[in-house]
Design a protein around this nucleic acid. Sequence first.
DNA 1: CATGAATGAGTTTTCATTCAT
DNA 2: AATGAATGAAAACTCATTCAT
Lengths: 197, 197, 197, 197
Amino acid sequence: MKQAQINPRKTPKQARAKASVQAILQAAAHILERGGLETLTTNYVAEVAGVSIGTLYQYYPSKEAILTDIIRQKRARLLEDLQAATLAMRNESFDATLAKLLRAAVESQLHWPKLSKALEYAESFLPLEQETRVLNEQINQTIVAFLEHHQVAGAPVAARDLVSALRGMIDGAGLAGETDAQALFERTLRLAKGYLA
Amino acid sequence: MKQAQINPRKTPKQARAKASVQAILQAAAHILERGGLETLTTNYVAEVAGVSIGTLYQYYPSKEAILTDIIRQKRARLLEDLQAATLAMRNESFDATLAKLLRAAVESQLHWPKLSKALEYAESFLPLEQETRVLNEQINQTIVAFLEHHQVAGAPVAARDLVSALRGMIDGAGLAGETDAQALFERTLRLAKGYLA
Amino acid sequence: MKQAQINPRKTPKQARAKASVQAILQAAAHILERGGLETLTTNYVAEVAGVSIGTLYQYYPSKEAILTDIIRQKRARLLEDLQAATLAMRNESFDATLAKLLRAAVESQLHWPKLSKALEYAESFLPLEQETRVLNEQINQTIVAFLEHHQVAGAPVAARDLVSALRGMIDGAGLAGETDAQALFERTLRLAKGYLA
Amino acid sequence: MKQAQINPRKTPKQARAKASVQAILQAAAHILERGGLETLTTNYVAEVAGVSIGTLYQYYPSKEAILTDIIRQKRARLLEDLQAATLAMRNESFDATLAKLLRAAVESQLHWPKLSKALEYAESFLPLEQETRVLNEQINQTIVAFLEHHQVAGAPVAARDLVSALRGMIDGAGLAGETDAQALFERTLRLAKGYLA
DNA sequence: CATGAATGAGTTTTCATTCAT
DNA sequence: AATGAATGAAAACTCATTCAT
C-alpha cells in the first residue's frame, strides 16, 4: 500500500490561483456528494473544477491531499460553530448550550449526507496531517469541556459516544431523504439529553 | 460507473466448492477488517483465500458480488439474533427485550469495527440484491414491531434513528479500541432508553 | 525522487510466461540499442514485445526493474566469459590469458554500443539489487585474481582502471561505427599491455 | 521523439540577464552532479537558479538547449586547456606535452564525475548544434596534430581510442571516490604512453 | 472445476512548455 | 524582461475480468 503525500504543495498567492484551489475543493466535494469516494478521480475533479489536471497537481500532490483538505476545512468550520455554541456556556443553562451544539451538528451534516459519510469513511484510512488531528482534538475538547462544566461523569467517553451516535443518526436521516432540520434537531436533543440523563 | 452483476454465479454443491466460497468470504472480510475497502482487490482476496483468481470468478461474477454476499451473511446473522431477542417479547418487560436487542447489536459490530464501517459504507453505493434488501427490511420490521408493541409513537422513525445512532456509537467505540462489550452495552442501553423515554 | 521497486515480481512457471519475460527483456534491449534510455517507456516495451502492458507489470514492478534485469543478465554472461578466459591461467602465459579476457570484453560490448552505454549510465543511478552487485564484485575479483597471479602491483586499482578505460574505448569505437572486432581487439591489447608494462 | 530546438534564444545583453543565464547553467550542472540526467527538470533548474520558469525559457527554448550549452562551455574550456598544452609542442618533448594534455583532461573531469558522465551520455542522443560539433572537432584535431607531430601512425584512430579510454578511466576513478589528481594523472600517463609505445 | 497468464481500460502523476499579467 | 499559473501530452502503473490450458 502506497503512502500518499498529503500536504498541499504550494500556497496559492495570486487571486487566479486561489480561485483554482477553491474550484478544485468544491468540485471534489460535489463529486463526493453525488457519487461517493469511488467516483472521485483526479481527472474528474479537474474536469468538474474547470481546470487542467496539471493545475490540480500544482496544488495537491495526490487525491488523498484533496480529501484531507476538504476534511480539514469541514472540521475547521464545525469547530468554529461548536466554539460559538459554547462561548456563553458559563452564563447559560445546560439545555440552552446543548441545543446550540446540536443545531451546529445537524447543520454541518444533514444537507450533505453522502459527503459526510464519505469523508467520515475516508478519515478511517487517511493519515491525517497534523492540523486536522489538532482540529479533531479541539472539537473533542470543546464537547468534553461543556460536559465537564455541567458535572457529567466520564465526560471523555460520553463525548465520544455522543459524537459518534449523532454522526450516525444525522447521516442516517440525511441518506433517508430527511431535510427538515428542525424535526431532526428535536430528535437529536432527545437522544443527547436521554443519554446524559 | 459500470453496474456490476452482483448475484452469485452458481450455488456450490460439492463440499470442496463450499469450502472455496467460505474461504473467499472469510478472506475478503479479513482484508476489510485489516485495510478497508481500498485494499480489497479480487486478486488479493483469491491469494489470501488460497484459491486461484479463476476459481473466485467461478462463484462471484464481480468484486461487488463478494461484498454483497458478506453483507447478506452479516445481515442474516443479525436478523436471526434480533428475532431471537424479540421472540419472547410478549411475555417480557420492555427493558428485558431491549437489553437482548442491544447485546445482539453490540456483539455483531464491536469486534470488527473496520469491517462494519467498510460494509456500512459499501452499502451506500452498492445496488443491493433483492435478498439483502428483504433482510434489511426484516431487521427494521423487527425493531418497529418491538417499539410498536410497547406503544412507542413514531416507531418507524425512531427505529431508524436508533439503528443509525447505535451503529455509529458502536463503531466509534470499536475504532477507539474499546473491547469491553459489557461496558459498551450499558452505555447503549442508556442511549436507547434515554431516546425512547 | 521516488525509489522504484526493482525486484522481479513473480517467477514465471509456465512456458508461456517464460516466453513473455524473454520477449520483454529482448524488446527493452532492442529499444535501448536503437534509441537509448530516453526512448525506453514501459508501454513501448510492451508493444515491441507483443504483450500487454498488464503482462509486463506482472513480471516487473517498474521500468527500473527491467533495466536491472537486463544488466544482471549481461553481467552474468560477461562473468561467465571472463571466468572461462581465466580458467587455465595457471598453465598459460600472461599474454594468452589477457588476450582471452580482452576478446570477451570486446565481444560483450562492441556490437551493442548504445545498449552498453545506456546500461552503464543506468547503473550509475539505479539501486542495483544484491545479485547484480555480487556479479560486479565477482567480475572485479576475476580481473584482480588474474593480475595478482602475475604479480601486478596495485591490482585492485589497476583492475578498475583497465575495466573503465576499456569500456570507454570499446564503446567509443562502437559508437563511431567500428565493427571489426579483431582490429579493435588488437588495440585493446596494446592499451592493456602498455598500461601494465 | 520530438526534435527540440537547441539554439539559445537571445543573447543576453544586460548584466542582470547574463547573471540569470549563468545561474541557470550552474544550477543545471549542480543538479546533474547531484542526481544525474533523470533529476534534471526545467522547473527544478529554475528553482535552484533562483529565477522563474518563464525567465529560463526566455534564454533557452528547451531543456536540451541548456544541456547543449553546458556541453558547449565544458568543451570550450577543455579545448582552451588542450590548446594551451600543445602551444609549445614544437619546442618540447613528446612526454612534456603529453603530460600537459593529460593534466588538463584529469582536471576537467575528475572533480565532477557524475556531471561528466551525464554530459557524455547526453551527447549520445542530443543533436549537438554546429558550434559544439566544431569544438569537438577542434579538440580531436588538437590531439591528432599532437600525435602526428610525433609521427604516431594511425593518429585519428589513436586519438579516438585515447580520448574515450581516458574519459572512461577518469570517470571511473571519480565515481569510485578518488580525488587525488596527481596519482590519477600518473596512471593516465602510463595508459597513454603504453598505448602509444 | 481449477488454474494462472494475459488483457486493457482507467487512474494517477509528471514535466516541458506557453502565455496572460 | 520577469513572473508563475496554467496546460495537456505522455508516462507509469493498477486491477477487475477473461480465457486458454
